[in-house]
Write a protein that binds this DNA or RNA. Structure first.
Lengths: 189, 189
DNA sequence: AATATATCTAAGCACTAGCTTAGTTTATGG
DNA sequence: CCATAAACTAAGCTAGTGCTTAGATATATT
């Protein structure tokens, strides 16, 4: 055997995630990652292969961080109210994760930044994320409901776009505006 | 006098606008602008001073292009229905402007790209755009309405965020999803 | 036609990007 | 205690960024 790594890959990825979250993918340089992660470029490339590789790991890391919120939504038994609570949880998540000002949702930010990009790996991650969300929304909307399938589908699409818009808005708008938005969004359901 | 310019500044700005619209600010390089505008870098800098200057002119150009839609909203006499029509008009606008696939709204895209940026000139343009929209929304919501001021304010904020989310969604989602979203958005206003 | 002056071309500037590599340091198994 | 192999440092690579400039070109006026 030889020398052991002087950093923990999980730990440095969390720092990378935070940086990508703040700046987006393109605006984050490998030099910035070096400083934030506290390791040399060589180590970054040895552990993750490329800047792109660091980003994919950061997305995974983010997903695991928000998993508790998503599980709470899945395990809820209160139908639409669970979705509404999920909206509130999502907005409050960044603060609870220790981010000072609100950077929105890393996945949604990425979705926007890569909207017209042909990066397959990212597109797949994004589609997976959106599809999972839609599936749960449909399930929640069906609880104790007499709505027909078409209505539920429409409402799920509506909430998916609303959730997406909310994540973007949370980067700019204040709490009152956000709360008003959520309340009015669900008054239509 | 001497040699005359061999290009029309308005014409080349329209091409620049189209390019910025497709790629965003950062992802558009001066070399790309050269090709798209059909003029040399020297001419770009002689006419507009900087890449940033080209972008500001492109935003102005875009604003004038969408002005007809905004005027239609202002001149309407049908209250909330005018806002709803404005939502539909906004989504259909890119196609009518000859853009092949939907790039959303250049102003909204810019708003997102510069959300955490300290560029003052851009921030002012964006704030102006949002404030104008909110003012008209409030005015339209007040037509033939018994709603109190607080309700109108809430609904205006709600519609502003919804319009913002819609512009982002229009880059990715299909017509059916977009239409469903607009219909549900206005179902309780 | 000659001159003056603005436009245009293309090469080049300093800087940053993502990534690589030569060479040094460090810890472990024999 | 030394050889080995991985981790580390720092310098450097190519390509691309926004922007500038020296020099060639074209045209309206004298």
């Amino acid at each position: 055997m030889a020398r052991a790594k002087q950093y923990n890959e999980q730990q440095v990825i969390e720092k990378a995630m935070s940086l990508f979250w703040r700046n987006g993918y393109e605006s984050t340089s490998v030099r910035m990652l070096e400083k934030e992660m506290g390791i040399n470029q060589f180590s970054i490339y040895a552990s993750f292969g490329s800047k792109h590789g660091v980003f994919l790991e950061s997305l995974k890391c983010y997903k695991s961080k928000i998993n508790s919120v998503f599980e709470k939504l899945q395990n809820g038994t209160d139908g639409v109210n669970d979705i509404k609570a999920f909206f509130y949880d999502s907005v409050e998540m960044p603060a609870k994760m220790g981010e000072l000002d609100n950077k929105g949702c890393l996945l949604t930010n990425t979705y926007n930044e890569f909207a017209n990009n042909e990066d397959q790996l990212i597109q797949i991650q994004m589609k997976e994320f959106m599809d999972d969300l839609k599936t749960v929304f449909i399930q929640k909307l069906s609880v104790n409901s007499l709505k027909d399938k078409a209505t539920i589908e429409k409402q799920a699409n509506y909430l998916l776009l609303a959730k997406h818009g909310l994540a973007a808005a949370s980067r700019v708008n204040n709490k009152q505006e956000i709360d008003d938005y959520i309340e009015l969004t669900f008054s239509n359901i």
